[in-house]
Nucleic acid binder design. Sequence first.
RNA 1: GCCGGGGUAGCUCAGGGGUAGAGCGCUUCCUUGGUAAGGAAGAGGUCACGAGUUCAAUUCUCGUCCUCGGCUCCA
Length: 649
Amino acid sequence: MITITLPDKSQRQFESGVTGMDVAQAISPRLAKEVLAVSVNGAVWDLNRPILEDAEIKLFKWEDREGQETFWHSSAHLMAEAIETYFPGTKFGIGPTVDTGFYYDIDLPEGKQITEKDLEKIEKLMLELSRQKNNIVRSEISKADALKMFETKGDALKLELISELEDGTITLYNQGNFTDLCRGPHLPNTEYIKAVKLTAIAGAYWRGNEKNKMLTRIYGVTFPKQKMLEEYLILMEEAKKRDHRKIGKEMELFTFSQKVGQGLPMWLPKGTMLRMQLEDFLKKVQKKFGYEQVMTPHIGDVNLYKTSGHYAKYGADSFQVIKTPQEGEEYMLKPMNCPHHCELYAFKPRSYKDLPIRMAEFGTVYRYEQSGELHGLTRVRGFTQDDAHIYCRPDQLKDEFKKVIDIIFIIFKALDFKDYTAQISLRDPNKPEKYIGSPENWDKAERAIIEAAEEKGLITVTELGEAAFYGPKLDFMIKDALGRKWQLGTIQVDYNLPERFELEYIGADDKRHRPIMIHRAPFGSMERFVAVLIEHTAGKFPLWLTPEQVVVLPISEKYNEYAKGVSDFLNNSDIRSLVDDRNEKIGRKIRDNELKRIPYLLVVGEKEAETQTISVRRQGQGDIGTMRWSEFEQLVQTEVREQLSSFYN
RNA sequence: GCCGGGGUAGCUCAGGGGUAGAGCGCUUCCUUGGUAAGGAAGAGGUCACGAGUUCAAUUCUCGUCCUCGGCUCCA
């Protein structure tokens, strides 16, 4: 007999060799129906893998990430099985899960190509295979046997993977006629997979290296219920409507021009208004935090970037140097603002009493991003960073870092960004040669970031080896409408640039010391931020505005969407009456195209309950007072009315 | 940059070797307390750009530019 400990610490006795599924059965038949995977002493296992010794286990259902991953990973195998049937001779790379669903990298037989139509057929095939209810069987295999097996199949990709694995750790999974090298875990059988949608075909380099062969990557997503798939597809449709590129065009916020060049966004009047509101807001916050605005040119002498080290990094792959009539004179479009700011710091001798010095600039920078990478406003070639550099003493580092986190909190709160990820990026301890600066300084900087984040109550994920070569950093990521993650705010500690620019301050000891530099951009860039903001807020009117500023809300151009969006706030009859008022004045109804020209609607807060009391503040006026929602709605109505009349008069 | 889709009216898109269509929008007029409506008339396109094949190219071929989904990269 062995003892199985459940998450609630309760213990049960079972025969040795009991499976996760057996335990689930013993608890309840319903659980047994829903359970997808089991963790045994922390490792996720197949449900039907025998447990031989005492263990702590946890059962995972669809609601658990582990359950979904198991489900989707098995789905990837099912897809591979279907593809092998559909295109015999296909070689398989890897088939992992992603945030939503899974993919498989495949190498199609010579001359074969896969199209959207093929996907539908493969989907059908997958469902047929699923109905065969084939058991997914795990088996351990020696390295030699594994190599032999995939050699006979002629599968070079798998051979490469196997050759890197240690003997004794290699497992195979089989279902029906399909066997794949795999660590697992998997579902007990294929029948669990009830709904399939293959979402995309894409090219991908083998093992992510562009020198390797380009494989075909097929993305898919599966669900245990057909209804869940339908809901998912509707969600994706909704998300597409929120795409900032679509809304940006509809609302005339920004545009691109073929003649101006790719990746170079231009802000239309309404978009400029929105952007300036954000800039003003941040400037105000920064002023409170002791920042000083500075301005620097868009170009700089090549030597500036050679000093900073950016030339080495951006030189060859960037916009090329600008020549002048003067022989040997070369300038570059600035790829970042830091070198200029360092020269501002070096403008005069600094005392330890002067520090910290906080220089802020909405600095437009230019980077030659790979053409295939450009994407709406989220990835462009010319963009404006809400940049600032803080030069401080080592003893000020942590405190300054915390203050930057405060600023980011203020912004995220103001704009109702709740669902973000904070990532601490540290150096790779095994590769000290990758980083500059003394290990002591690195230790200090990393500790400062970790402690600052902790003291601010920030929930973070830590990534080793993700640090910049000059220092560790803290990044904030937000998802766009389609769930893609974008890095927005970033705070980076830098020991490198002060060194390269020989920045100094005179300490209390009358000796020269090197300041530490913090790079930070709470928005990241205005372009990317506005993009994410649009997707984040679109469709869930009212926009935002909480603490002490009113930010403009772009309203959708379509009357229907407008009415639908605002109905959270004001019901439709309110809107109609506003329109009717206007109607009387001008002797006829306001038409859609007139209404849509009203550029912005001011709204505050987010409605939670009819009777909820909220405190409302207004930019430039501060606190307006505490009021109920009904009163607040009145206020908003007045706002709308004013906007309407100011628009027409 | 690489792999694979696209580029036709302001927008969303259909079409396809014989120089263009729809819906919405736009303009003018009419109608209308069932109106987030209806009617009539109208404006608007060198079918992304360049070259080639052809009697004839928006349609086929090639190149260029732009764009979309990914890969690598990044704010």
